[in-house]
Amino acid sequence: MATPAAAHAPVPPLAADVTAFSLGRLGAATGGLLGLAAVVIAVLALRRPAGRLAVAGGSLGAKAAVGAGLVATALGVLVAATAGGGLGTGNGLGGAYVALLLGLTGAALGRRALHRTRHTR
Score class of each variant (00 low, 15 high):
S22I: 09
A7S: 13
R47G: 14
L46A: 02
A50T: 12
L87G: 02
G31Q: 07
T89P: 02
A28D: 11
G90C: 10
K63N: 12
G85N: 08
A80W: 11
A5P: 11
T105P: 01
R118A: 12
I41S: 00
V55D: 01
L33H: 09
L44T: 13
G35Y: 08
H119Y: 07
T73H: 07
A96C: 11
G106Q: 02
P4W: 12
G110T: 09
P10L: 08
P49H: 11
T105M: 06
G85L: 01
T82W: 06
H115Q: 15
L78N: 07
A64V: 11
G27E: 02
S22T: 15
P13F: 02
V11D: 04
V71T: 11
G76F: 03
T3E: 06
L102I: 01
L78G: 06
G90F: 12
D17A: 09
R25N: 05
G84M: 09
A5K: 15
A29Q: 11
G84H: 12
G32P: 12
L102H: 09
L14Y: 04
P4Q: 11
L75H: 09
I41H: 00
L46R: 13
T82H: 07
L60A: 15
A29H: 09
L53A: 08
L60G: 15
G106K: 01
A96M: 13
H115M: 14
L36F: 12
V43F: 03
T120M: 10
R112K: 12
A81E: 14
T82A: 11
A42F: 00
A108I: 07
G106S: 03
G67A: 06
T30N: 11
A38V: 00
P12H: 04
A81Y: 09
G94F: 08
L109Y: 03
L36R: 02
G31F: 13
A9K: 10
A83I: 12
L34H: 04
G84T: 09
N91T: 15
P4E: 13
G90D: 10
P49I: 10
A83R: 06
A64R: 05
L33C: 15
A50P: 04
R116G: 01
A56K: 01
A83S: 15
A68I: 14
Y97F: 14
A107E: 06
L114R: 03
A72I: 06
A50C: 10
A68T: 14
V43A: 09
N91Q: 15
L104Y: 06
